[in-house]
Design a protein around this nucleic acid. Sequence first.
DNA 1: GATGAATGAGTATTCATTCAT
DNA 2: AATGAATGAATACTCATTCAT
Lengths: 180, 180, 180, 180
Amino acid sequence: MDKREHLIEIATNLFSERGFENTPLSAICETANVSKGLIFHHFKSKNGLLREIFMKTTKLIVEINTTKSENLSPNEHLTELLESFFVQLKADKLFFQFNLNVIVQPSTREVLNDLIKERSSFILRETKTIFDKIDAPNSLVKSHMFIAELDGIALSYLSIYEDFPLKQIKEHIIKKYSKQ
Amino acid sequence: MDKREHLIEIATNLFSERGFENTPLSAICETANVSKGLIFHHFKSKNGLLREIFMKTTKLIVEINTTKSENLSPNEHLTELLESFFVQLKADKLFFQFNLNVIVQPSTREVLNDLIKERSSFILRETKTIFDKIDAPNSLVKSHMFIAELDGIALSYLSIYEDFPLKQIKEHIIKKYSKQ
Amino acid sequence: MDKREHLIEIATNLFSERGFENTPLSAICETANVSKGLIFHHFKSKNGLLREIFMKTTKLIVEINTTKSENLSPNEHLTELLESFFVQLKADKLFFQFNLNVIVQPSTREVLNDLIKERSSFILRETKTIFDKIDAPNSLVKSHMFIAELDGIALSYLSIYEDFPLKQIKEHIIKKYSKQ
Amino acid sequence: MDKREHLIEIATNLFSERGFENTPLSAICETANVSKGLIFHHFKSKNGLLREIFMKTTKLIVEINTTKSENLSPNEHLTELLESFFVQLKADKLFFQFNLNVIVQPSTREVLNDLIKERSSFILRETKTIFDKIDAPNSLVKSHMFIAELDGIALSYLSIYEDFPLKQIKEHIIKKYSKQ
DNA sequence: GATGAATGAGTATTCATTCAT
DNA sequence: AATGAATGAATACTCATTCAT
């Protein structure tokens, strides 16, 4: 059992549940049954731990997007992206919330600035590659709209509307992008 | 000079700039040139102050939406809403960020739970009134999509993409909703 | 309705229930439905209020003891004192506790120093008058023992032993002093 | 030099002198020359420190009472108890006062509730064991009277009568219990 | 790699008291 | 007599971080 990996896992869960600022390292240590010193030994600081977690997530996102089969039509590709987005959104509510969290909070935002830029420009690039095949002249605007819609749906679903009609929204948006 | 009102104003600014959790009451007091005790005299607690600010914003939103002239076609109404949204988004960046912030952060989210519900259901109701006139059977889904798109745009613009093409997005979305 | 008297009554109750140090003036004001300023107007300070309450109690004790019929034998007198002590102890638990409280607590003890001396020497004097008739040479020691026993019983009953056998103790001690 | 033990010692002294509620942690830290954080590291809270001190005292009381030689007559045993009580009362005035204090004060009383019960039932049990040998049918009442008398004497001596005739009271009570 | 004692700066909150009205 | 805005000093407690072992 790799304690380093174990710590990352537990910290991710706690940060997701309570938010980064409201999760003292002591809580992580107690849950993981390790000493405080060990966190600093492995990650230098609490911010270091946060960056490590954020980087891991980005790596995951990149992997998912690059291993996707390339012999799909652009519309099929969009549909596939949407499908996996809605599956994940439902499965990993807390984790999505954590990502929203650290991006929106000024203090964490500052710590993660470079990593957020890196991740978001990757996502924009990937999306734009698809829209280039559909409507090249407007691909940038359409990509931004596509991303904003998904973020907005996540926000509404996770933090605003308890009875958000996720299923119907999914059908609506998939229908919209499958024939564009 | 009403110190109570003054405190709300200054706190709103500071919370927007630094985030709620990262703004100590001492900072507010120093800026407003009052004692710490006064905040507790007027607002009971830091959370009390937060609620007061959030309620004031809701009141503003309600006012704006209810005084709107009623002799517009639904599409004109949407256009008008969009116009004012983009104007405000650009003018009050920090304030939008603050609202995103407290909604997404678990700790503040909990404190404001009832107020967030109240505000968000008001917005949904108002939006649905418009879409009822355009496409009654799908008005709920379309309202949710409309709101999610705007929230997503705000999120992308404020917290993710430094070079977000706000102007073109605005044109794109106004065009879309003006002929729906 | 005399607000001054009303305040004393409410403060006595609250001090008895929570202890003097743990009863903020704000609690008294809320319960009495008056402003904070009024307490300072009437009593100068929180300590002033405490002294007022303590003095009132002493006055009561003095009254009870001086109006007592004087045509009793010393042993009958002791029995009568004991009877009224046990009746009061059972009826006014909280109030006894409050008196113990302020006497034992160093901070309040200091504030009430002169009043405590005054009251306790009155009680000793009265008790000694009785024991002088029973056993003059040892009257001082016996008076002190008598007072200490009652205080000790109150202490045990109120603060130490939940199942203190008050009734049997009463019988025991009355029997003891009725034939001394 | 064990800082934990050192802290307990210093806190005991200060609590005895000023009372628990009137001793800020800062006073303890300054006297002990340690940081505030250390108290919370070792005792979790101010109340935790109080409990630790109270427990230590109970342990001491238990030790003293259980190591007592068992080949004494019950009356000799009582005399011995009384002798050591009066010696300690004179030597450790402040410490006795502290114990009275925390038992009588509602707030500390609540914190120590279980520990007070534990200690007082131990004392009652031990006392009753002696009186069982003297007057079995009335042993409970006599034990309670014995304890109440000692508590009452402590109270009078420490908090009420400046010129309490401790020596004569001691002789009086020892004489009384040596021939019972 | 791993522990845990120790630090110190920071933070919300309490509360008696004052004073203008 | 009565109010309540305003103060400011005090206080328990939190928490990331350091460091000797």
